[in-house]
Amino acid sequence: MTRNNSTSNADSTLLTQFAGLDTAAVSDALEGLGLPPGQGGITPMWGRPRVTGIARTVQLAPLDREHGGAHILTSEIAQAGPTDVLVIANDGRTDVSSWGGILSLGASAQGVRGVLTDGACRDVHQARELGFPVYARGQVPRTARGRLMQKSAGEPILFGTVTVHPGDVVVADENGICVVPSARAAEVLRAAHKVQEREAAIEAEIRAGAALTDAMRDARLAGEEDNM
């Protein structure tokens, strides 16, 4: 899936707006709109890098034939661009790596914003040296070669507990991961900013001496008082 220049510019503008939000605010906004909230369990493998980008999806599966051809993910990395985040479904498998150092190097060279894999990775030191964000369920040195194959790319995938479509907005930080459906992105963005503003006001009141029980009213946290 390749996007034209006007689409990429629109993506960049949207991502800049999401970049100022943490996953807690985005998760609350998603849930308030009846969408799947954020999820945990897939964490940064080094430091605390934040990732905000457009999902480029890949589904992996156990190899069921003799290995041949290019390594998994290489074709998708070659087509990826500077607004993209690679989102890899590997059914939570952690006994074999689904991402490694050479892939980090290739993705970094393409300007890719990061990778999220529902599986394990290896060569974390290389990703760290490159400053390339890798989110995974864990680390393992065992290679994917001869064990995994690329089943599909550019198709909807089940990533942990959430279905991710190509073009969805992905927000990841040390709290977890949120997936924002592309068709609802503007709506979620507005709701998340309201959550963030409401919580900032509550924090300001507490710092000014307000009682926690008064500042953190359930109706206020739920946004019900915004419409009063």
Rank of each mutant, 00 (worst) to 15 (best):
V58D: 05
S12T: 08
G176T: 04
L33V: 10
E66I: 08
R56N: 11
I206P: 06
R122D: 07
D118E: 14
I102W: 13
E197I: 08
E197R: 09
P166R: 04
R142P: 00
V164W: 06
A186K: 13
M149T: 08
L63G: 06
A29I: 06
V188N: 03
A215P: 02
S152G: 12
W99I: 08
G41V: 00
G68I: 04
V96Y: 03
H165T: 14
Y135C: 00
S75Q: 13
R113K: 15
E129V: 05
Q196P: 01
M228F: 12
E225T: 12
N175M: 12
G20P: 08
T74P: 05
A215Q: 02
R184I: 03
F159S: 11
S152C: 00
G223R: 05
G119P: 05
A201F: 05
V169A: 04
V96N: 01
P181Y: 01
L21K: 03
N4T: 09
D91R: 07
A183R: 10
L15E: 06
V180I: 14
I157A: 01
A78V: 02
P141C: 02
R128S: 12
G176Y: 08
A144V: 05
P82A: 12
G114T: 03
D11H: 12
V85I: 14
T2F: 14
T13K: 13
G68Q: 10
A89I: 03
P156V: 11
A153T: 13
A25N: 11
S108T: 05
P62N: 08
G114M: 14
D168M: 04
V164G: 02
A24T: 14
G106I: 01
R122H: 11
S152L: 03
T7G: 03
R190S: 09
G101A: 05
M1H: 11
A192H: 06
A204R: 11
S104M: 01
N227H: 08
R122G: 00
F132Q: 00
G81V: 04
P49V: 07
S104T: 03
E174K: 15
A153W: 08
A120W: 02
Q196W: 04
I206V: 13
T57P: 03
E205Y: 01
D226T: 07
E197K: 09
R207A: 15
P37C: 14
C121T: 13
